[in-house]
Amino acid sequence: MDETIRLTVDGAERTVEVDTRTTLLDALRERLEVTAPKKGCDHGQCGSCTVLLNGRRHLTCLALAVAHDGAEITTADGLAGGGPSADRLHPVQQAFLDHDGYQCGYCTPGQVCSAVGVLDEVKNGHPSHVTADLEGDPDLTDDEIRERMSGNLCRCGAYPGILAAVRQAAGA
């Protein structure tokens, strides 16, 4: 069964016909040719499909497209301004370049979106599993970064570079 939904993707209004079985990830990748979000597992286990959905990081492989009619989505591409000629990188993206926080690049758009989400969550005082004081403002220690970024696997093992990148972006 098909349904038509509207999405705002990286600032552009898009209308797309989806199967009711279509995930948000497949709607983006296969129907809209928006391929910055990657499919590493399709089961919510790797984080490579992470985007900012209505401002918060979200796994698009675990979201059904029809349930997100009207949603606003920002991908790693959109964080850099969107469009083929845009080269204004988001500070998180610049930090990934500065610290070589990637190798093959397949986890990277998800890591970047996740890092942007993490910085925002910390700013808003959200605690994590390793936050000692649940009442106060969390400090973005290395352990906090590692914990909060652990939903994004990197098989290339670029974690030390990712850590340094998030640290840099947090200070920026």
Partner: peptide
Amino acid sequence: LDRVDGVAKVTGRAPYAVEHG
């Protein structure tokens, strides 16, 4: 030397196999 394909990777614009259109 910065990876020559770094910007393509951090923006998600680098096309992997089934992403070619």
